[in-house]
């Protein structure tokens, strides 16, 4: 197993790390038993995701996919953000080892879960 240079770069200097003060939506996926937990925060203005942040417990791939997915959604309209798939996250990172593909799935799920949370809050 070896990580791509892009994965290592995002692992070493993860973007958008930290908690968000007043998020529009939060997505929390994974569990400690599996060894990965991702929390993704989004800030929505109008129909655009203007900011995204994350906190992650997990391996190098989990941290890199979290970092990458937050980069990918920033500035995107919600409709566009919903089209981001795990394969797109993995591809943007120059690929992931097969055994680590589940990390990209987690990133996609975290994003969708944050968007769902945003809609739930909005309609409440």
């Amino acid at each position: 197993m070896a990580y791509s240079a892009k994965v290592m770069e995002h692992f070493k200097s993860p973007r958008n790390v930290g908690e968000m003060a007043d998020p529009s939506g939060v997505g929390k996926v994974g569990n400690p038993v599996c060894g990965d937990i991702m929390e993704l925060y989004i800030k929505v203005e109008g129909d655009t995701i203007v900011d995204a942040k994350f906190q992650t417990f997990g391996c190098g791939a989990a941290i890199a996919t979290s970092s990458m997915v937050t980069e990918m959604v920033k500035g995107k309209k919600i409709d566009e953000a919903l089209t981001i798939s795990n394969a797109m996250v993995a591809e943007a990172l120059g690929g992931l080892p097969p055994i680590k593909m589940h990390c990209s799935v987690l990133a996609e799920e975290a994003l969708k879960s944050a968007i769902t949370d945003y809609y739930t809050k909005k309609s409440a």
Binding site: V17, P32, F54, Q55, T56, F57
Partner: peptide
């Protein structure tokens, strides 16, 4: 730990 949700 600074960005671990478990630690938070």
């Amino acid at each position: 730990r600074s960005f671990s949700p478990l630690y938070k």
